[in-house]
Structure formats: structure tokens, C-alpha cells
Amino acid sequence: MKQTTVRNLHRDLGYIYLGLIISFAFSGILMNHRENWHPEKYTLEAKEIHVALPENEKDITDAYAENLAKELKIEDKIRRHNVRKGKFRMQFENTQVEIDLKSGDGEIVSFIKTPIISQTMFLHKNTSNWWIYFSDIFGISLIIIAVTGAMMIKHGKHTFKRRGWKLTLAGLLFPILFLIFS
């Protein structure tokens, strides 16, 4: 491939995907830390509650969860509920409920999605067909950008053959070591 063709392809794909690269990088950073804070939403109201839960966990059914939601005057549609680690949790579109199984003490948290941030984070979660195909094209384009970038320097001490392959190998080692030691 000609040097000018490689540079042009590298440049044009870089320009096309610049905004998407920034969006993915930004939302990826937020997603990495979502267990420490909830960038996608913020709390509007938190209210303490006390509920007499059934003594047998098996009695906490879909019907029980729906009736409890009505009793707690939660207008949202229930998305899921579970019992785990001594807690009964119900998740709604804009509300979360968590109740301790032994004491019955709990909390209702109402929240709203954070503008812009929640939409950006949606990119990482979206599973619609068109987005999957677009993301595949984006991934292939990132590979092309990386390879054409490595091919652009043909002479001198900073070429891929002299130095670039070592740095590329170092870059590949990080995810491999992470997978081995995690």
C-alpha cells in the first residue's frame, strides 16, 4: 500500500471516529467506577421504611413484590427483585428498594438519570442489532487506525521494525497479565 494511501486512510478514519472515541473513552471510565458511585443517576429522595417481610424467603414471590410495591405507593413498573446476602431488593425504572430480611428495616431511593452521562453510558449497554454492527465496524476501524499508524513511519530509529514492535508487545502484555492474575 502506498505511503500516502496509508496516511490518508489513517487520517480520515481518525477524523470520522474522533467523537466516538472520546464518547466511548469517557463512558468507559465512568463504567469502570460505577460500583463506587452511580454516575448514571442521582438521588432525588431517600426514605427509611420498616416492612414485615415473610419469614420464609420462598414466600417472596413476584406477586408479593408487586403487592409490596403498591403498599409502598411506588408507581414505577417493577423490573426485578431478588433476595441476596440477607437483603430483599426491588428495582424499578426510577426507584430502588432494599430491606433487611431480619429487621425489616429498609430504604426507598428515588432517582433520576443524569443528563448526557446516562445517555453516553448507554452506548456500552446497548444491544440493538444496528448498534452492535456499528460497534463492530468501529472496532475494525480502530484496528485499521492502529495498523496504519504503525506503518506510517518508514525510516529512522522509531520505526515499527526497530522499536514499535517492543512497545506493541508491552501494550499486549497488560491485558494478558490482567487476565492471568484476576
Rank of each mutant, 00 (worst) to 15 (best):
Q91D: 11
G104F: 12
I153P: 04
A69V: 06
K161W: 15
I143P: 00
K154W: 04
T4Q: 14
V6P: 06
A150V: 03
Y133W: 13
N94S: 08
T61V: 07
E93V: 10
T148P: 00
L9M: 10
T148Q: 02
L20S: 05
D59M: 12
M121L: 00
W131L: 14
I99Q: 12
A63L: 10
G28S: 02
D76Q: 13
G104E: 07
E66L: 13
G164P: 07
G149S: 10
S23E: 01
L167V: 06
K157E: 07
I74N: 10
L142D: 05
W131M: 15
K77E: 13
E45S: 13
K73D: 08
R80D: 08
K87A: 11
K41C: 00
T114R: 00
I144Q: 08
I132D: 04
I144E: 08
E55M: 13
F24V: 07
F122A: 14
K166N: 01
L179N: 09
S182I: 10
H155I: 10
H38T: 02
K125V: 01
S103N: 01
I16F: 15
G104V: 04
I117L: 04
K154L: 09
N36P: 01
K102H: 09
L44M: 13
S118E: 04
G19W: 12
K125Q: 15
I117S: 02
A65G: 10
H33C: 01
G149F: 08
I112M: 07
T4W: 13
I180K: 10
I137Y: 13
K58N: 13
Y133E: 09
T95L: 03
S103Y: 09
Y133A: 08
D105E: 15
Q3S: 13
S128N: 15
D105Q: 11
L101W: 09
K77P: 02
H10K: 06
K73Q: 13
H33D: 00
L72H: 06
G86P: 11
I16D: 03
T5Y: 12
R34I: 00
L172H: 05
I99P: 14
I60E: 02
E35L: 06
I112Q: 14
V83M: 05
L172P: 05
L18G: 04
N32I: 00
F26L: 02
T148W: 08
Q3T: 06
K2Q: 14
G164M: 11
E107V: 10
L44C: 07
M152I: 07
A46R: 11
W165T: 02
K41S: 02
Y42P: 01
K2V: 10
W130V: 03
G164I: 05
R11S: 07
I29P: 00
I144P: 10
K113M: 00
E57A: 10
L142K: 07
E75Q: 14
K166L: 15
I153R: 14
V83N: 06
F181T: 09
A65T: 11
G14C: 05
G86L: 13
I112N: 08
L101I: 12
N32V: 00
G28Q: 11
R163A: 12
L169N: 06
Y15L: 12
I144A: 14
K41M: 03
H50P: 02
F88Q: 05
I176M: 14
R89N: 12
S182N: 14
I132E: 08
N56H: 09
A65S: 15
G164N: 04
L20W: 11
E66N: 14
F111W: 10
L169G: 12
